[in-house]
Design a protein around this nucleic acid. Structure first.
Lengths: 188, 188, 188, 188
DNA sequence: GATGAATGAGGTTTCATTCAT
DNA sequence: TATGAATGAAACCTCATTCAT
């Protein structure tokens, strides 16, 4: 009777991958990932056909995680500012809590291992916040700019803010708040 | 006298490295770099003791390049806005003209190969624009935020703008201009 | 269960190492050793983490071999002379039968690859003959000399004898016997 | 007419070779030797056509050095014992004073780089002590053994003694003396 | 399904030697 | 003659992937 592929083991491999890649970059070996996951090196390949696929699925997983965090308790009916602030805050708190996951996410994003398929899938995942982002584009000063500009702008200001928030844990809350105000002022 | 180490060859290796890394990531092999540079595989190591050093010097070179571009014709005496706009425009035109160099610069920046020494050296290189950046920090709405926030913010908005400018060559000039207005509004 | 690391293969690698090193010195390449052992070049490293370890374990193996030969049929209860003669004869017959192994043992011994750990382990292995060696030290004319002198002396006379025994196979038995007499006379 | 380039430089290279080889074994690179000798890496090859030749000439040089030490003040007319004791003492004092040179000599001797030509030349160099060694063979208890046995035996006992003398500098003189007595007793 | 030994291409680096200067 | 840059073969070792058990 064939044992079933265990989702727990799959998750362990992905978690291990995060850790190893955060430490050693994308060059982290599959063997080291398997070892940390507590499975045999060969077993990794029963869960992922090859390293490239593992990396792509890992990225998807990380994105799913961020967006599920952002989507949770999303104040659908609130003002645009309130919704934007929610996105802002939730993303930053995830990034601060999970620095390794975030680092790996960045690494994967700038690398060339992500397939167009993966990129498309990520777009799909964004889901619930998409309308808010589009509204941001339409109603902001950026409306002469491409539609996605406002959203990309928000992302990049988050990155900036993140660096400072990480380095100054004590002022974290204040920093995040003030930076959002700057952002909102800019865009509104 | 034997032949002297030729700066031209050193440059060729660095250029080749840009090309290969843009194509294959930091995993690009030293052999492929040497080959593209037109030197024997071993010769690479007469110019750089090891790959890590090559990568660090490459980063320095790229940064030197950007900053020399930004520093050139810098309107010292002009208004803060004019100076900020100069930085904005010059950086973006470099990034657009040299997409490979820019990509490699980003790759190196997020990787872990850069030594603290290299990071410190880069800071030194920024040179002439530093006072402008500090002034930006002081005189902007971001003045409750850390001093470097304004500068980091400018950087990240440049990244955002860059993506759009690259994808829409025709609206490029306009995009760059409008985005700067958004930035200035935000910060001012 | 995957295949288990096969002791036979490990042995084959060690044997191959003996052969290659006897031919080319310690510079013998791991690739050539693997090839002669009939395994892939990479497989060598599943048995030994690196060349240095391979060399150290090889030395240990060779010493184990000599001492197991010397310890076998050791005439515990016999006279000191009989015991010394046993050591003398057994070592020499091993060295004569296995000239390559002996050569490699010497090469390793004068090189700097042997760790202090390995040296200590070898000392442990000597085992059964140790008391005889100490007795030799105590009861010999060398007793004013350091305790290990007698034993070192025996070793070095064996080396001398070996050279001649190898070159004159016909007189071998006689040579070994006469040389022992000289030794015994000297020490007694 | 023998043309001498710069004997001083040649000597510097040989001295540097001793040092480097003592440190890193025969794998010491020609570049490191040249560097330590204070000449350019290429210059080494104007003094020695290749590394192998360098090594062979180095061995010859070292042997010349020992034998010139042993031959100096050789008490031609003295008793056999006095002459043997002279050889014994002089060699040991050289070995103790020049541990690096001695180590390199041993390394070269057990390696396979020495040509038969070199070995033959060394035999020639022994010169003045040869008759004494032959006499030792004839007049010793080893006279049933091959002629060179006595001489080889003396050598190997010297090695043994050397180890102890090096490790116990304070008892050095006494050790050397006592060990000679053991030797003489054995052989006489 | 799980395991980990086996594989061999490929990576970085070293080095003896050559040769332009 | 002296120099040291240039060369490319070869060394050691890693690694994604396969497959016998």
């Amino acid at each position: 009777m064939a044992r079933l592929k265990s989702p727990a083991k799959r998750g362990a491999i992905l978690d291990a991958a995060v850790h190893e890649i955060a430490r050693n970059g994308l060059a982290a070996s599959t063997a080291s990932i398997a070892k940390r996951a507590g499975v045999a090196s060969g077993s990794l390949f029963t869960y992922f056909p090859d390293k490239e696929t593992l990396l792509n699925e890992l990225y998807l997983e990380l994105k799913r995680e961020v967006y599920s965090r952002v989507n949770a308790d999303f104040p659908q009916a609130a003002s645009l500012e309130a919704r934007a602030r929610h996105v802002w805050t939730q993303f930053l708190s995830w990034a601060i809590e999970s620095p390794e996951r975030r680092k790996v996410s960045v690494l994967l994003n700038v690398s060339d291992v992500l397939t167009t398929d993966t990129r498309r899938n990520v777009a799909t995942i964004r889901g619930i916040i998409e309308p808010t982002m589009r509204e941001l584009g339409r109603r902001s000063v950026a409306h002469g700019l491409p539609a996605e500009f406002a959203s990309a702008f928000l992302s990049s200001m988050q990155e900036t803010t993140l660096d400072f928030a990480v380095r100054q844990p004590k002022r974290r809350k204040e920093l995040i708040d003030r930076a959002f105000q700057v952002f909102w002022r800019a865009i509104h």
